[in-house]
């Protein structure tokens, strides 16, 4: 059972004292040192920082695909650390949308079929799922590429398919891992603009892990990390990290 939502709906993610280590005994490495972070709904929050600072680890914890030793993490009030097994998988399926650095599209499926995968996984019929995916892809400017396979699309187009896949089931939280890392500057800008337009909603949070300072302008809030700690949170465009 997924626990009842207790927190105010305006808070998409809340992390309090999250600690995460890898390895055991002598090889134990602590990568997150008590992370405290609130991510409001209706905003696009970026997690930035140098390689190895723990951004992806924190994102994985927020996404419910990595456990942690101490602290609490909740998504729209649901403490994900209390979810196990099938409940956690179901929670991810219903609540989260994923955008990956390497897109991770299924090479044998067309753009519309790829975008429909979360609906198919949720048991929606194939025809309905693909129709809904096609509507979304059309909104993202891929109406002419619905039947193309990933290898027939450019990197930017593939990432737009990934955006559609992340949004097609209307998740409450969208997590993006380096969504522009594999794209040229122009494609990166286009993808971020589309992501912001399509994903942002008052009842949805968007988290983007990135190294790419050219896309910082698309963030409502930037959390900077260093050595497993949040070192700074900039809440307005004027305060954004340079």
């Amino acid at each position: 059972m997924i626990p009842h939502t207790l927190s105010p709906p305006a808070l998409a993610v809340r992390c309090a004292g999250v600690v995460k280590s890898f390895g055991t005994d002598e090889t134990l490495v602590r990568v997150l040192h008590g992370i405290d972070l609130d991510i409001p709904a209706g905003e696009l929050t970026m997690l930035v920082g140098p390689s190895g600072c723990g951004k992806t680890t924190l994102l994985s914890i927020i996404a419910g695909i990595l456990s942690f030793e101490e602290g609490e993490a909740s998504i729209f009030g649901t403490p994900i650390h209390s979810l196990k097994g099938a409940d956690l998988v179901r929670f991810r399926r219903q609540t989260l949308g994923f955008i990956f650095q390497q897109y991770n599209l299924l090479p044998a499926l067309s753009a519309s079929e790829n975008a429909a995968v979360p609906l198919l996984a949720a048991g929606v019929g194939r025809v309905t799922a693909i129709r809904r995916a096609e509507e979304l892809l059309a909104q993202l400017g891929l109406g002419a590429h619905l039947k193309k396979l990933p290898n027939q699309l450019s990197g930017g187009q593939q990432q737009r398919v990934a955006i559609a896949r992340a949004l097609v089931h209307n998740p409450k939280l969208v997590v993006c891992d380096e969504p522009t890392a594999a794209l040229d500057a122009q494609s990166g800008q286009t993808v971020m603009a589309l992501l912001r337009d399509a994903a942002l909603a008052p009842d949805r949070g968007v988290i983007v892990v990135t190294h790419d300072n050219r896309i910082y302008s698309y963030a409502d809030r930037i959390a900077e990390m260093s050595d497993g700690r949040i070192t700074r949170v900039a809440r307005t465009p004027a305060q954004k990290v340079a």
């Binding site: 099938a86 998988v89 929670f91 991770n104």
Partner: peptide, 16 residues
């Protein structure tokens, strides 16, 4: 494996 990993992350169960 990456595709299976993506499906797992998206919420496809081990049984499926």
């Amino acid at each position: 494996m990456k595709q299976f990993g993506a499906l797992k992350a998206i919420g496809v169960t081990n049984t499926t």
